[in-house]
Design a protein around this nucleic acid. Structure first.
Lengths: 339, 339
DNA sequence: ATATTCAACGAAACCGTTTTCGTGTTAACA
DNA sequence: TGTTAACACGAAAACGGTTTCGTTGAATAT
């Protein structure tokens, strides 16, 4: 077990000062060639690597970014993290991941833990509880301290910061339009409660498409699941009662459950009833039939978020200008609709 | 934008020394009640929080743990991370996630980035390329420096460190036995190449169960996929040619693909052909029919890994004793087999 | 009146860097 | 011979804490 070697160790061994060693390793003009070579050779020999913590303390930059998300066992967030990680890594940053588990308190605690010097900035997606409460003081505190924040997907407009979202309304609108164009007449929506910003936007898009059509929108064709948890019974009852010929779901799971149920009833997909979900995850791809979805491009979203955050972190200027990047969703056509 | 306040600021404002402030905030006996109250009140008012980096530098503990895994868009790893994160967080640690993307080089680079003071220890699962190469020098270097490492799932026995695995061999053995007990006679295995430690163990369990049976094992009933990538054609050809009545797959995706294919051919699951996969992810749960799997208990694995790592980090003793924790897999019975 | 003790606080070292600002030596110049 | 400039290096401050070891003044003991 050979402990890490420090500048001081090299200095002592070579009988020069610490500053000389530091400069020599940075190839400073100030130091003679002889000394530089001597120091660099010694450093290489003993595998010297500067201590990140000391450097962080010195220049007040940790090269860490904090990512706070509600859940990680969730395909969308997972792809976002991958996007963040890839991009951040390429720019020399590490990613600290914290899970709020949809809890306001955990979100607050996580942010406090990280906000005391551990990170240079945050990338986050709000927990459902936070969106429900509408309390964003923890975000305000952090931004007030001058720590850059990028909000993605589940955002709030009450905080001034950079944001990255996909156009959920447009995605739902296009999906619903697709149904209409294919001659579907009883188009249902299975969603979650409105306090989730994304569900709200998707509902809006669905509503708009139907209103624009000759058949108009009908409140009773919307099933609002009270929580993120699956409630298979609710879906069954709803589908049994309403007998839609097309269903838009705000996630994959609702859709797959619905498909399984109607298949058991003997309906054909997509002839008798068509399905479109959100999130282009494994489930959609390998479902039977495969599920048409509105793809959210999580990886791209993560990359954009990371880019915006790091740019802000590294820009000296204290510009107080924030932008919201809106990504376009894509309809990935699979066998759960006619084509 | 109010910048963070430091001990020095408080000291200046209250006209006491920095040491007094530090002690007062720690409720030291050395300091008079008056002073303590004054300091603490001031600190609370200005929302003083000690700088994590400074503390890290001082006591050479970062309270960060580095997690290096091959992939994050993968249900198993995702649950492991959740287990790690939950446990680590409860003990005041943060989790830095790095992705090797199955690449040896990235694994090395990631470890080097973190090993210079950023973390107190590593939890990792080897990339396939690393296992293929069999080069573990980057691990050796880290352990030689005295940085604790916990290996999980994809491990190597060439490194002395704590390990957490599930008994993959047993899992495959039990699954195969299940098929045998249900009267299946042509039991196939779809796996990946042997260099992946887990695939190797699973193949071993499959082989052992068949050898113990009267029918014996048959090399030709094993399909080895050259990479982790899906190759639907290979699976189809194999199933067409071999016509097994039961298939064990080393992951969910192979199984779901196989199921979809045989269903198209008109076979009934599980009567004509039964399936068991590995990894209890969303896919298994929502597949049609739902897939029986060998559950790997990723979250538990993550928690155990984190516990072992943090215990080692916090133990002063430099014991050189390492343990390998073997978790028992569980067969989760669903509709892809008879029951 | 002197020595001893103790409470309450401050100075300074330290963690490992970076960086500014000297400073001593030598060579070039007038 | 005295001045100057360049060169090569070191001392020290700084980042923000913790911690050890004084130091001071007053109270108590002798």
């Amino acid at each position: 077990m050979k402990a890490k070697i420090t500048l001081k160790d090299i200095a002592r061994e070579l009988e020069v000062s610490i500053s000389t060693v530091s400069k020599a390793l940075k190839n400073s003009e100030e130091i003679s060639r002889d000394t530089k070579e001597k120091v660099q050779a010694f450093a290489k020999l003993y595998n010297y690597k500067p201590n990140n913590i000391a450097i962080s303390l010195k220049n007040k930059r940790t090269k860490n970014i904090g990512v706070v998300i509600p859940d990680i066992v969730h395909h969308f967030f997972t792809t976002v993290i991958r996007g963040i990680e890839k991009y951040a890594n390429a720019r020399g940053y590490n990613v600290i991941v914290c899970l709020s588990e949809e809890s306001f308190d955990k979100e607050v605690i996580n942010m406090e833990m990280l906000a005391n010097g551990s990170i240079d900035g945050f990338i986050m997606s709000l927990s459902s509880q936070t969106q429900e409460k509408g309390d964003y003081n923890h975000l305000k505190e952090v931004t007030d301290q001058g720590i850059p924040v990028v909000l993605f997907d589940r955002i709030t407009h009450e905080i001034d910061c950079d944001k990255v979202i996909i156009d959920d309304e447009l995605g739902a609108y296009q999906a619903t339009k697709k149904f209409i164009d294919q001659g579907k007449r009883k188009i249902a929506l299975i969603t979650t409660d409105d306090y989730l910003s994304v569900s709200k936007a998707r509902t809006k898009g669905y509503w708009k498409a139907l209103q624009e059509s000759e058949m108009g929108a009908d409140e009773s064709m919307i099933l609002k699941m009270p929580s993120m948890e699956m409630d298979e019974e609710a879906i069954k009852t709803f589908l049994d009662k309403k007998e839609p010929d097309a269903v838009l779901c705000v996630n994959e799971i609702f859709a797959v459950c619905g498909m399984r149920f109607v298949q058991k009833k003997g309906l054909r997909i997509p002839e008798d009833i068509a399905f479109i979900g959100f999130t282009d995850g494994v489930l959609s791809k390998y479902a039977n039939p495969s599920l048409t979805v509105v793809a959210q491009h999580g990886e791209k979203m993560g990359e954009e978020s990371a880019r915006m955050l790091i740019d802000k972190v590294e820009s000296e200027a204290e510009e107080e200008t924030y932008q919201t990047k809106i990504l376009e969703p894509t309809l990935v056509i699979r066998d759960s609709i006619a084509h």
